[in-house]
């Protein structure tokens, strides 16, 4: 298969392990990390509106410790790719990802970020067909746009990925 984005280099993702890498210590620190995720204030399209809704009082991502939206990649550890990544914007996305400190996590929010979504057509010349062709994605949240609850579920999935367990109860009627 030919490279999908010939003019774009995927993100450099070299991460050295921590100096104190004992599992017991890192497990404890991972719980601390998972309970205070700092997402990046970064939206590309309409999914960002849902991301704003999640930060507001009704859905209130602060209940799960992730309300500190940082305006700088150097201070954030979760990148929510909220929206359509087109070729003009992709270098900026890659650059922001490369500037985040480790451990860094990426949530692809919405169909556009996952696969190109409605723009996943033949001879597409402008929209990146899935942001995971450029940066490593940890959690995919489908929807067009996803509901704020879906974003919260995505956050829970990232917390589960960090710590190895689910921290919040499964909503009624939901699947575990």
């Amino acid at each position: 298969m030919a490279p999908q984005n010939p003019s774009l280099a995927p993100a450099v993702n070299t991460v050295d392990p921590a100096l104190i890498a004992q599992p017991a210590v890192q497990k404890l620190v991972d719980v601390c990390r998972a309970m205070s995720i700092w997402p990046m204030t970064f939206g590309l399209a309409c999914c960002a509106i849902e991301m704003m809704a999640v930060g507001m009082a009704r859905f209130d991502i602060a209940r799960y410790g992730a309300e500190v939206f940082r305006p700088s990649p150097r201070q954030s550890d979760l990148m929510i790719v909220a929206g359509t990544v087109n070729k003009k914007m992709a270098p900026a996305v890659v650059r922001l990802y490369e500037q985040m400190p480790a451990p860094r996590y990426v949530m692809a929010l919405g169909n556009c970020a996952i696969s190109g979504g409605p723009f996943n057509i033949e001879n597409q010349y402008n929209v990146i067909q899935g942001v995971d062709t450029l940066i490593p994605v940890d959690v995919y949240v489908p929807g067009c746009p996803p509901r704020p609850e879906a974003l919260l579920e995505g956050l829970f999935a990232i917390q589960q990925k960090m710590t190895g367990r689910r921290w919040w109860q499964v909503p009624q009627g939901g699947q575990s």
């Binding site: 993100a11 450099v12 993702n13 070299t14 991460v15 050295d16 392990p17 921590a18 100096l19 104190i20 210590v25 890192q26 620190v29 700088s72 990649p73 150097r74 900026a92 890659v94 650059r95 922001l96 490369e98 500037q99 985040m100 400190p101 480790a102 451990p103 860094r104």
Partner: peptide, 19 residues
């Protein structure tokens, strides 16, 4: 953070500007 955090480097990490 020096002791406990893994270190990411390379790419645009050393750039002065974020955008």
């Amino acid at each position: 953070s020096l002791l406990l955090a893994p270190k990411a480097h390379g790419g645009a990490m050393g750039e002065s500007y974020e955008c």
